[in-house]
Amino acid sequence: MFEYCVDPSVLEGFRWLSCYLTTGKHFLFYWSFLTVLTLLAVTAPTALAFGFGGAMLARGPAPVSWLGKVYIMAVRGVPDIAFFLFFVIALDQGIEYLRHMVVCPDWTDPIRQGNDFIVCSDAKTPNNSADQIYHDVYGFFLAVFTYAIVFGAFAANVLFGAMQAVPRGQIETAEAYGMTPRQTFWRITVPQMWVYALPGLSNLWMVLIKATPLLFLLGIEDIVYWARELGGTKQAKFTDYPHGDWRLWYFLFLLVFYLAFTKVSEAVLDRVMARLTRGQGTLGGTA
């Protein structure tokens, strides 16, 4: 990156470090932070939308409400990261299976042959001949979808509770003004529920931040992948910047990154809470 980096073997101290930290691979490492932030930025609204849909379903009339409640219960009841490992393969196979049915209707062989899952080559998603970038985007999409489904169920639970918490008097007033149930929901319940939902949602956001390293398990080249990759011992034969086992320092950096991120989120969410409680008839709002 800098001009003096041409021959790293003669560099010392700070100059060596500045060259080392600006190699191509390190830029991939810095980019992967952006991957994580993008995942958070895309997942949070998607999960919120899933949650909103789930909560609305759960409030609906009898057969519809079961659907919402089953979604909330199923995801929250199934314990843990197993869900992350399970869902990505299940989703991948589901998509390929559906495409297989559409693209190759003449295919007669069974899809599950013993230990193999075989679909016709046209149904492979993405196609084997596709560029690497499509594989990456597809993997990222699967990850976002998995996170959104899992966290959507938790958000649905929070939003469901928040909708119930809107004071009864407000709803009755709306009815007295002759609003239809739809109008009442969109004009009264939804604007007022956020203040009740925020503590739960901010807790969920903290959990979501701390769940991002699991991207690594989903096979995405995220910060954990690069920290392991770059930190490992490098021999002089293979690289211009030989060093010992530095994974400790890379992971220490990740730890500090997450701590700082959590701290900043806490401060921002406190401000949002202060803004939302303004003028509300709660303990926090009567100022």
């Binding site: 931040i209 390293p213 954990v224 920290a227 994974r247 400790l248 990740l254 730890l255 997450y258």
Partner: peptide, 22 residues
């Protein structure tokens, strides 16, 4: 409390393993 609650357990495992290796 801040360090252990504010960071992912996954990262804590990794970090601890490399410390123990040292």
């Amino acid at each position: 409390v801040l360090i252990f609650r504010g960071s992912p357990l996954f990262i804590q495992f990794f970090l601890a393993y490399f410390i123990f290796l040292r």
